[in-house]
């Protein structure tokens, strides 16, 4: 991808709000190690999703800064995939600290990683191809949706 800063942020928010929401709706009942009312499970699932979005905006600033060292000002496909590691780990530890417990219960490790990685993969796959089908101007605008 060849994103601009605003393109990165918009693409992330848009894809989490579409692909991320759909995947979360489908996957939450099947996450391993979870129990309790389905409403609580969804509350946890969406809390994770929103956290990825909010923290992600900060991450995008960091990625944008790092991208400046690249002559091409591009963000290779592999970077887009592998950044799940740093983002996932940070979020996982933040949830462990319990700072979001007032909103919803932190998910068990298995549930968190399954949910997080499946959403990440789907978003990454859509961003690397199918996104261009409905949005023909998106790739020429650095990933801006608006």
């Amino acid at each position: 991808m060849v994103p601009t800063l605003f393109g990165r942020i918009q693409t992330r928010l848009f894809l989490l709000a579409t692909v991320g929401v759909i995947v979360t709706l489908i996957i939450v009942p099947f996450l391993p190690g979870t129990s309790g009312p389905i409403g609580d499970l969804y509350a946890t699932g969406f809390m994770v999703l929103v956290s990825v979005a909010v923290l992600g905006v900060i991450w995008e600033f960091i990625y944008h800064f790092l991208m400046q060292f690249r002559w091409e000002k591009d963000w290779p496909t592999l970077f887009g995939l592998l950044t799940f590691i740093n983002e996932g780990l940070l979020l996982f530890f933040l949830l462990r600290t319990g700072i979001l417990d007032s909103i919803a219960d932190a998910p068990p490790a298995g549930a968190f990683w399954t949910h997080f990685i499946v959403v990440w993969l789907c978003v990454w796959l859509v961003a690397n191809g199918p996104m261009r089908v409905p949005f023909i101007r998106w790739r020429f605008r650095g990933g801006r949706v608006l």
């Binding site: 060849v2 994103p3 601009t4 991208m67 002559w71 091409e72 000002k73 591009d74 790739r139 650095g142």
Partner: peptide
Amino acid sequence: YQGFNYPKSVWGGQLKA
């Protein structure tokens, strides 16, 4: 050395903008 005729971001990213 450069992958393509121009730095990649001229086709849609930062340099284009």
